[in-house]
Design a protein around this nucleic acid. Structure first.
Lengths: 344, 344
DNA sequence: CTGAAAGCGCTTACAG
DNA sequence: CTGAAAGCGCTTACAG
């Protein structure tokens, strides 16, 4: 029912081979034949069947983007749409399509990847789900299939990844707190599960050390699930006796919860306590007070992730690739006493 | 190099047809043959080539999800990840995969859709990009191809769509303002481009009418681009002389900008002016003051969108389908004077 | 219950 | 410069 290459061949009074070559811009086809064929293709509204083409080429020009499933909050990447935009923009230029894979839990994920890869549907995989010990990563390594992880995995030999330098980010933000004259700085939302958070936390500790400040465990609040918001974390912690004067939250969302809690306690930000987060979500700028945060350049993360994957797919020289995306500390009212009240 | 059905056939000493039937669970295959084949498939780690299967079945089990491109802000759907989660959850159950298509501008989008559809890659399309006169919609209608729009289009005959009842949402929120005793209620962020916003605006006007309140044009602030934030809109508008006592923003993000502006002017929310938005973004709850908004149930929008598409693909009876997803007004501090100061 | 053959819509050596 | 033939990895009438 749909018009095929044979229909075009018949109409143009040539062989299917010739039509195929004309479409591929094979220079061996004469200009007049080519023109005739193209005219007829347009007339008959012909579009090549990409599936048939894929079967013979063994190239689908589709990559899989694996995002955290239903049960895990997308929280891990509040900037997911930005990453996707980044990937999509360059993928489109390279004529690649993106298949989204989002499944309930980790086991489903592994099976899904297997199906897409072994089934010959995709040529490469981008993982947005780096867990501390990730079954999907292990599977892809085992299969020796092109893939890139967004966020640095723990055992990262053999693995292509893109990420910010989270250690440096944590360090820089802490340094900013110290420069504001703070010595009792809390870190809220340490999670053993996510590498990015752990790295930022390590940067925090190093900054304290370098400034000869003590690392006080009572100022470090863990959270088991990233879905825990800052408000709850504050309620559960007992800062009463030896309150911090600065709080670094593992994420802007957590910071918002913290500030809400402090507000309700009559504690003012930034006058009584300064607060900052990470990831520079859309609202940080409009929050009151506007929130000091770190821009991670999610769009660039996406772009680089695709480009690494593209190289990995299209070069037979198998080397491991990395990209470190620069992040930027954005200082706003929440960490600067008087910044808005003073005349400029 | 990859193991095929022929390899399995040889190893199992049967014909490829038999292997194919065993995989398809054809009851005509004897249990012992089937078992033998499955054992060997496992041994040789065989996975059927989905592309080859698609070619003969003419069914790829892939749908396209078209999202607004780079130039247009994803602003239109801040809840995009939620919609995606909804679609993915049911698609996965029905063994469908999702191809994301996000391109620079409207013309690229049309061409992209053409390629995916005519190329036989996808079986249906979900559009998240309903513009007032949408070329992609026109194209899909012309091709008579299964598709669903998220958000009600203007000319909606022949078109499957899912949406909230945006008129009712606008009405209800306005009614809430009126019940709080307000009569000078502004609507900020009217855009001629997006149907959802126009419908909410229509609901606002009807509510005023029903309460015999005048519709004051000076209280209606348009914006050409949805990317304009509330802060800018407030700066450009001259409410000075006849200030509203309540402001309805077209979106929570816009509301945040408005509140920031009011704060800087020393105008208190909700004491001096009450403010609300739509879409109940993640932060509305944690904003100070917490923001009254409308939960649109994006997850459900996604689920229903897929289900409508699924029916449209798999039934030859061509009827037009609709789904109205219930929305919920969530009243918070930003529209309730004294709600947080009064003892409970 | 099983197999041989044709076909899905393309591409690409091979031959001329 | 063009065509006939084989093949990509499956499925499915048709025959037995």
């Amino acid at each position: 029912m749909r018009v095929t290459i044979n229909d075009i061949a018949k109409a143009a009074e040539v062989s299917p081979s010739t039509v195929s070559r004309a479409i591929a811009n094979n220079p061996r086809i004469s200009t007049k034949t080519r023109d005739k064929i193209f005219k007829i293709m347009k007339q008959m509204n012909y579009h090549p069947n990409l599936i048939a083409r894929s079967l013979v080429n063994k190239s689908t020009r589709i990559i899989a983007l694996v995002v955290p499933g239903n049960t895990e909050k997308v929280f891990q990447h509040p900037f997911f749409p930005e990453i996707l935009r980044g990937i999509a923009s360059v993928a489109h230029q390279s004529k690649y399509n993106i298949l989204i894979s989002s499944v309930a839990d980790v086991n489903d994920e592994k099976q899904m990847i297997n199906e897409l890869v072994k089934g010959g549907v995709v040529e490469g995989v981008i993982l947005m789900t780096s867990r501390v010990k990730d079954p999907s990563i292990e599977e892809l390594v085992k299969m020796d299939f092109p893939f890139v992880v967004i966020g640095s995995p723990t055992n990262d030999d053999q693995i292509n990844w893109v990420d910010n330098n989270n250690f440096a980010i944590g360090y820089e933000l802490t340094q900013h707190f110290i420069e504001q004259g703070h010595t009792r700085i809390a870190f809220v939302g340490v999670s053993q599960e996510f590498v990015a958070v752990l790295d930022r936390f390590a940067g925090y500790k190093k900054a304290l050390e370098d400034n000869r400040l003590p690392i006080d465990d009572s100022l470090i609040i863990e959270c088991e699930y990233l879905s825990n918001n800052g408000y709850d974390l504050m309620q559960r912690s007992d800062f009463q006796e030896k309150r911090p004067t600065g709080i670094i939250a593992c994420d802007d969302f957590v910071a918002f919860g913290i500030i809400k809690f402090l507000n309700e306690q009559g504690i003012k930000v930034p006058e009584d306590i300064i607060v900052a987060g990470f990831n520079n979500v859309a609202l940080s700028e409009y929050f009151v007070p506007s929130l000091t945060s770190v821009e991670v350049n999610a769009f660039q993360l996406g772009i680089q992730a695709f480009e690494l994957l593209f190289e990995s797919i299209n070069s037979d020289f198998k080397s491991v690739r990395r990209a470190i995306i620069p992040a930027e500390l954005i200082i706003r009212d929440s960490t600067c006493i008087g910044s808005k009240d003073q005349p400029r």
